[in-house]
Design a protein around this nucleic acid. Structure first.
Lengths: 215, 215
DNA sequence: TTCAGCTTGTGAACGAATTCACAAACCGGG
DNA sequence: CCCGGTTTGTGAATTCGTTCACAAGCTGAA
């Protein structure tokens, strides 16, 4: 199974991201080989699942031995597109936006936020780290000048769709959305939603049902 | 199909959370009835999906008419456990923790953060909003006094597991984890992970492989 | 070399979630 | 009341993801 013949299922990609983190930990601890069972134990899944996931990428394990931590780390980084730097623009410099901007792991993984946009006149011109916050009017120019690959949306829900339409028009093909709206994008633009509320509400559902059952 | 006979599939619960948001919007716009097709259009899914999802809760639609916005809103709030206030503790008052603390929609939905813990001596005693930040040593006492239902973990990865063990020991049954680790919890405790990195890495995978995913 | 002990890679079985397709139900008008 | 237009609720079919089970392959030791 060649890594270019088949697309990698979505559920698998999410786990690859976890495996990579575990591999980096193993590497730091000086472990050189790791079995599917060890990765599974660490990630709360099963050895069969790990092997099936990795089999989508090709055949990088050695029977009887497991996987080379170094090699598999390299392969995962490549499959996840982490061996180049991605130029990222942040839309919205509010609480969430600022927290994301300052989130160290992003930069460590090669996601460089080089552009920040906010439509609050009080913020335009101010600095976030060493980036000057630019106004909404400069959106297209900023995206183009900085050759942005990916946009993080952290603006209030009502203005998100309008901004994203312009972002897509400007040629950006990947959007990470923190705004609590369902964005509509044309085919060919990758979208990922991170909803603070959805996960919390899943938990409250679990809590509420549990109470019911024990009663 | 009665709402207490069957458990609601996980994938469905996540969508219910979205539907609720749409219903609230519809309600504000004065719409009184809504068809599955309208909810689907708004949520980027299909009418059949919406009906299947809602059928897990019971039979609240009227054929030929659709769903009563008011009634369905009430039902969803109830199923998601949103008609009571949940007492929430926040572990970690760093960038992420602070942003979460100030995230308005949490409070609007009945998630009240009444306790904040941080192990940085410089922060202990300081205030976040009108809450006094308490030290790690007071964890158990604070959880117990405030009768906490749910904990949000926003501490650095290395200390997360240790804290969560104590939280579970203290009787908390739901954990929302923002730390980039895979937490291990006993049966019966609900866990949800929000990973800033996983979603971003899915996008970079899509960009690198020229595969388009939507979510 | 051969053997014992592990561990991978993968077809096949299984299970879960989504989509399809249509009978049943409802409304308003004539 | 009956009919035409509409929309739900749901079995059946399908697609997608996970788990099982085992042959094949590697290592190190004798």
């Amino acid at each position: 199974m060649n890594e270019f013949t088949n697309r990698v299922p979505d559920a698998t990609v999410r786990r690859l991201s976890l495996y990579l983190r575990f591999l980096e930990d193993f590497g730091r601890s000086g472990v050189t080989n790791v079995a599917s069972a060890a990765l599974a134990e660490r990630g709360g899944t099963t050895a069969a699942q790990v092997r099936k996931d990795l089999s989508h990428l090709g055949s990088y394990g050695k029977r009887g031995l497991g996987y080379s931590v170094e090699e598999l780390t390299r392969v995962l980084r490549s499959v996840l597109g982490l061996d180049s730097v991605w130029r990222v623009a942040l839309l919205g410099a509010g609480r969430i936006g600022t927290a994301l901007f300052e989130y160290e792991p992003f930069r460590r993984r090669g996601f460089h936020i080089t552009t920040v946009i906010d439509n609050d006149p009080a913020k335009v011109g101010a600095r976030l780290g060493d980036i000057r916050i630019r106004g909404e009017g400069e959106l297209e120019r900023a995206l183009c000048e900085a050759r942005i690959d990916l946009v993080i949306v952290a603006v209030p829900a009502p203005v998100a769709q309008g901004l994203v339409d312009r972002v897509v028009e400007a040629g950006v093909r990947a959007v990470l959305n923190y705004a609590p709206v369902q964005l509509r994008l044309p085919e060919g633009v990758a979208l990922r939603n991170v909803s603070m509320l959805v996960e919390l509400e899943c938990l409250s559902h679990a809590l509420a049902r549990r109470v019911c059952h024990s009663a």
